[in-house]
Simulated scan of single mutants.
Amino acid sequence: MSAFLVQLGGRCHPFDGLLSRRTWQSCRQFHGSQVVLARRDKQKVVALTKSQLAAKARKKALKSRKNFYAGEKMTLEDAINVLRAVEVAAPNSTYELVIKTLLTKGTAIPKGRYSLPRQTKEVSQDRILVFAEGKIADEAKRAGADIVGGQELVDGIISGRHQASMFLCTPDLIRAITPKLGRVLGPRGLMPSERRGTVTADIAGFIRKLKGTSEWRGDKEGTIRTPIAKMNFPIADVVRNVRYFMRVIKEATGNLVDLESRDSNKKPQTAITRVVLSSRQGPGITISDA
Rank of each mutant, 00 (worst) to 15 (best):
D172H: 02
R161L: 08
M231C: 12
G144D: 02
R280K: 11
A132F: 03
Y244V: 06
A47H: 05
A108W: 03
I136N: 12
R127Q: 09
R274M: 10
E194R: 06
L102N: 05
L97Y: 02
A145Y: 01
K141A: 07
I272G: 02
V6N: 11
R22Y: 10
N265K: 14
G32R: 13
L259G: 02
V199Y: 08
R243P: 05
E122L: 15
K180N: 03
E133S: 11
D289N: 05
K44P: 14
I235A: 12
V276Y: 00
L153V: 09
Q29W: 13
I128R: 01
V148H: 03
G284I: 06
M246Y: 00
Q163G: 04
A252R: 04
E87H: 11
K56I: 10
S124P: 03
V154T: 00
Y114D: 03
R39P: 10
P14T: 14
K105I: 04
P268V: 13
R40H: 09
A79I: 08
V130D: 14
K220P: 07
L129I: 00
I158G: 12
V123N: 08
R40G: 11
K56M: 12
E260Y: 08
N232V: 07
Y95T: 01
V130P: 11
P187D: 01
N92S: 15
G106S: 05
E122M: 15
E152Y: 06
R84Q: 11
V82K: 01
F245Y: 00
N81F: 04
K141S: 14
Q151M: 09
R274G: 03
K121D: 06
T107W: 05
K209R: 15
G205V: 01
F4L: 14
D78Q: 13
R161N: 02
I285Y: 08
L37A: 07
T170C: 02
K135G: 08
E122R: 13
P91E: 09
L18V: 13
A61V: 02
D258I: 06
Y114E: 01
E215C: 04
V154H: 01
P110K: 05
I235Q: 09
K111N: 05
I249D: 02
I207E: 05
R58M: 09
T200I: 14
P192G: 00
G32S: 13
N67S: 15
R280V: 07
G205M: 02
R21D: 08
K42I: 10
P234C: 03
A143H: 14
I287W: 01
G150N: 06
D146H: 15
A204C: 04
Q125F: 11
E77H: 08
R243I: 06
I249N: 05
N232Y: 05
G134H: 02
A85T: 14
L210G: 15
G32Q: 13
S279E: 07
E221H: 10
I80R: 03
A164P: 08
G134N: 00
G150L: 03
I287R: 02
V123K: 05
L97I: 04
Y95S: 00
A271C: 11
Q7S: 14
M246C: 07
M246P: 02
I228D: 04
F30M: 11
V248R: 00
Y95M: 03
K44A: 14
A90F: 09
G112I: 12
E152T: 08
F30R: 08
